[in-house]
């Protein structure tokens, strides 16, 4: 086989592999989109790919199930918790990045281990404490819970970004007479905007998808999109169409957003360890 032939074969093999990968990872999503557009009677017939698409499922979840209430709660909770976490977390990350002290790495590990807490374990005391405080079924308790994993995440990620900013820039600022806070505000934050964006995306996604806390701590007023899956279980079977429609609506914004900021996402996934 000549070199050119080898190359061609290689190319075809890679292309095939890519197609398989895409198929495997995309299939459940496509299936969901398809189900959401299928009329009820066709859902139990998987082979039927030609059908008259209907938006009935979407109408039903918006008008009958009031799914937009869930979306409103999800958005508010995710947004508020993300903003708060970014502020508190970034400041701490700056401390970790710019100062050196004896227990620094131990403390950093402590932060990391908080990100690792199993939600299912910690939700029991949260439930009881929220009960005593009278905060059950409120958005604020969810905001607080989501900060539990968003703040450590922000610290870990932003630390990497801050460490990349050359010290000289800060020193130049200090010579110009800026105070520590001013340096942070005027110089560091604008420079680390890409990092903040990446962090924000992950905080938003994590809060948007969170299920355990939302399931246990809310009942009517503050319920969020992931808990809506319970709505679609009924005596006569799961309302797959409505559930799929909710899934499409819930994931569409995140997916579009995620693809748009792909580059930051990869960086975010590696905690800034790799400059994407």
């Amino acid at each position: 086989m000549s070199r050119a032939q080898k190359r061609a074969v290689r190319k075809v093999v890679v292309l095939l592999l890519f197609l398989i990968i895409c198929f495997f990872f995309l299939a459940p999503y496509l299936w969901m989109v398809l189900i959401s557009l299928k009329p009820k009677v066709d859902i139990y017939d998987p082979g039927k790919l030609l059908f008259v698409p209907t938006l009935e499922n979407y109408r039903s979840i918006i008008e009958d199930a009031h799914i937009l209430e869930y979306f409103k709660n999800s958005m508010l909770v995710s947004a508020v918790s993300t903003v708060l976490s970014l502020v508190i977390g970034s400041i701490a990350a700056y401390g970790f990045a710019r100062f050196n002290w004896k227990d620094r790495e131990n403390m950093a590990f402590m932060v990391l281990s908080q990100r690792m807490l199993p939600a299912m374990a910690i939700v029991i005391p949260y439930f009881l404490m929220a009960m005593f405080a009278g905060w059950l079924d409120t958005r604020k308790i969810l905001v607080i819970c989501y900060m539990l994993f968003n703040v450590p995440f922000t610290i870990l990620m932003m630390r990497g970004f801050f460490e990349d900013i050359p010290l000289e820039i800060e020193e130049a600022g200090k010579i110009d007479g800026c105070s520590g806070w001013q340096v942070l505000k005027e110089l560091i934050i604008p420079l680390s905007l890409p990092g903040l964006t990446a962090t924000a995306i992950f905080c938003l996604i994590n809060s948007w998808n969170e299920f355990v806390f939302a399931n246990f701590l809310t009942s009517v007023k503050a319920k969020t999109v992931p808990t809506s899956v319970m709505l679609f279980l009924s005596v006569s079977g799961t309302k797959w169409g409505e559930m799929a429609a909710t899934g499409v609506l819930a994931s569409l914004p995140v997916i579009v957003f995620g693809i748009a900021v792909q580059k930051y996402m990869i960086r975010g996934l590696t905690f800034g360890a790799v400059k994407g």
């Binding site: 890519f18 990968i21 895409c22 990872f25 995309l26 459940p28 999503y29 299936w31 969901m32 189900i35 996604i205 948007w208 998808n209 299920f211 999109v225 992931p226 808990t227 899956v229 679609f232 799961t238 559930m243 799929a244 909710t246 899934g247 819930a250 994931s251 995140v254 997916i255 995620g258 693809i259 792909q262 996402m265």
Partner: peptide, 19 residues
């Protein structure tokens, strides 16, 4: 491929589980 890879990561697990 990148775009496709992002989808499972961001999909709400409770809904993905049902699908």
């Amino acid at each position: 491929v990148f775009a496709v890879l992002i989808i499972p990561i961001v999909m709400t697990p409770s809904i993905a589980g049902n699908i």
